[in-house]
Computed example of a mutant assay.
Amino acid sequence: MRLNFKIKKHLKYAYYKEISRYKELLAKEDYPNAWHHLERSHIIGQSYPIEHTYSHWLMLKFGLMQKNSKEVFGQIIRLLVGGWKSFINHVPIGNIGGANVPLLKRMIIPEDINALFHTK
């Protein structure tokens, strides 16, 4: 079993680029596109406990801001288990992290993100 501790440098850069874009769009109240970049950050960071947990924390805050009880409840559950699942490398690859998708559903990874995963 492989344990994940630290995100690779190029993935960390891409992850924080998505977080930055999320925050920019959130400030402009472009909520659908902001959420899209938050989902992308989740895909990139989901195999690493800190980044995975932080994406879910931002998703919880977004759900609270939107007064979306389904999202809030879903993110609380994900916050409780997500980091641990990342640490032991047991995450559903490609999952976008929102409460609108099943916790364990694998999803198709966008091509540009998939290319990052195959870069050393």
Score class of each variant (00 low, 15 high):
Lys120His: 14
Ile44Leu: 01
Asn89Phe: 08
Val81Glu: 04
Gly94Thr: 15
Ile88Ser: 08
Pro102Trp: 15
Ser55Asp: 08
Ser47Leu: 06
Leu58His: 01
Ile19Asp: 00
Val101Trp: 02
Met59His: 06
Asn68Phe: 03
His42Thr: 13
Val91Ser: 01
Lys12Asn: 14
Ser69Gln: 10
Lys61Asp: 10
Arg78Leu: 04
Lys17Asp: 14
Asn4Arg: 08
His42Gln: 12
Arg78Val: 08
Leu64Gln: 13
His52Asp: 01
Ala115Pro: 06
Tyr54Gly: 02
Lys12Arg: 12
Ile7Ser: 04
Tyr15Ile: 05
Leu11Cys: 06
Glu71Ile: 07
Lys8Ile: 05
Lys28Thr: 05
Phe62Leu: 13
Pro92Val: 10
Lys6Val: 08
Ile113Tyr: 01
Tyr15Lys: 04
Arg106Asn: 11
Tyr13Leu: 10
Lys67Ala: 15
Tyr54Pro: 00
Ser20Phe: 10
Gln75His: 11
Glu71Arg: 09
Ser69His: 10
Trp35Ala: 02
Leu103His: 07
Leu38Tyr: 02
His56Cys: 00
Glu24Cys: 05
Gly74Phe: 01
Asn33Arg: 11
Leu79Met: 09
Arg106Pro: 04
Lys17Ala: 14
Leu58Phe: 03
Trp84Val: 11
Leu79Lys: 10
Lys17His: 14
Ile93Ser: 07
Val91Met: 05
Arg2Thr: 12
Phe117Thr: 11
Gln75Lys: 12
Arg2Ala: 11
Lys23Glu: 12
Lys61Tyr: 09
His10Lys: 06
Ile76Pro: 00
Pro102Arg: 11
Val101Met: 07
Leu38Gln: 06
Lys9Thr: 15
Trp84Ser: 11
Arg106Asp: 07
Ala34Glu: 09
Ile44Phe: 00
Asp30Leu: 11
Gly94Ile: 14
Trp57Leu: 14
Tyr48Gly: 01
Lys6Thr: 15
Tyr31Pro: 01
His36Val: 07
Asn100Ile: 12
Lys8Met: 12
Trp57Val: 15
Arg40Glu: 05
Val101Ile: 15
Ser86Thr: 08
Leu64Thr: 11
Ile19Glu: 00
Ile96Ala: 00
